[in-house]
């Protein structure tokens, strides 16, 4: 019986309920607009959430706190490089990915060479990334090339282009985590790093790949967010730190590591957007909104983990 209820179903159920509750207020004519907005804005949370999920799966103590700074740095530098000119789009995207790789390598170097715990390493690295972003452009907003601005705000077959990108990224992650040797090794390390090492898993190699992956996903999210919102801002990544962790936890991945869940990231990302929209639509103040958001998150996590314990 409990096999039918997947850990990620809670996130989707919650997203569906909040969607229904909002539509009940807006009426049917508001429903498609709300769905498009949800898919669009959930995409950014999905991109950063997937990377954070891989890192958290590595086990206790592993979390990437540099995500906001990497987003800001990648968005700022790639838009500065493109300078709004046509024909530079591919270079901009490559630059963003390169910045992600560099940031991930810096994170991992701190963890490996200086033996700093990942939380401290990624936090201190994020100061460097943020300072680089400040220093490189002093907070000026440079517009993305028109092609990228149009693409990132557009839709194909009725679904926002960004949602297609995030869906593709989720599919790639699903294959990586569920079907590849990397995914098995990642779970093994998260469940028991010592046992994994004794069983011949290249622990450090997998860890390095995971931190690189997380930073690249953050850079990708930063690049698209900057294109979507008409330019990079120094504080653009700020709320994606808690968001990236929240979607992992609500999505049914284990916060203690060793067990990840790709579909749940999508359900949780949609839920996180919808809950704010719902409470805004009902006209509740910021205080009530934050309390309710917190309470609902706790309820979902409790329901999901209770189910797992019973199973």
């Amino acid at each position: 019986m409990s096999g039918l209820v997947r850990p990620w179903s809670w996130a989707f159920a919650a997203a569906g309920l909040t969607y229904a509750a909002t539509v009940a207020l807006t009426g049917v004519q508001g429903a498609p607009g709300l769905l498009v907005a949800t898919l669009t804005f959930a995409s950014f949370s999905v991109l950063v959430g997937l990377g954070q999920m891989a890192v958290i799966t590595l086990g206790p103590g592993n979390v990437d706190l540099s995500i906001p700074a990497v987003m800001t740095l990648a968005g700022t530098l790639s838009l500065k490089l493109m300078d709004g000119a046509a024909g530079t789009e591919a270079w901009g995207l490559l630059a963003a990915l390169g910045i992600g790789l560099g940031a991930g390598a810096a994170n991992y170097a701190l963890i490996l060479l200086l033996r700093i715990p990942p939380i401290i390493a990624t936090l201190s690295a994020s100061f460097m990334f943020q300072s680089l972003a400040v220093w490189s452009n002093r907070g000026l907003r440079i517009k993305p090339p028109d092609t990228l601005a149009t693409f990132s705000t557009g839709a194909t077959l009725g679904m926002p282009n960004l949602a297609w990108i995030a869906l593709l990224a989720a599919a790639v992650f699903w294959v990586l985590i569920e079907r590849s040797a990397y995914g098995r090794r990642l779970s093994a390390i998260g469940q028991n790093a010592r046992a994994a090492r004794l069983a011949g898993v290249p622990v450090e190699g997998v860890r390095a790949a995971t931190y690189l992956l997380s930073a690249v996903m953050a850079a990708l999210a930063g690049f698209w967010l900057a294109c979507f919102s008409g330019g990079a801002a120094l504080n653009m990544g700020a709320e994606y730190l808690l968001m990236s962790i929240a979607v992992v936890v609500i999505g049914g991945s284990s916060i203690a590591g060793g067990n990840s869940n790709v579909p749940g990231i999508w359900g949780a990302a949609m839920f996180m957007f919808l809950i704010v929209s719902m409470l805004n639509s009902y006209g509740l103040g910021a205080g009530v909104r934050l309390i309710l958001t917190g309470a609902v998150i706790i309820a979902i996590v409790a329901a999901a983990s209770g189910r797992r314990a019973a199973a």
């Binding site: 909002t22 508001g30 907005a37 804005f41 957007f273 919808l274 704010v276 929209s277 805004n280």
Partner: peptide
């Protein structure tokens, strides 16, 4: 935030 509240 505006995109989320506009439908209502």
């Amino acid at each position: 935030a505006v995109a989320g509240v506009l439908p209502s």
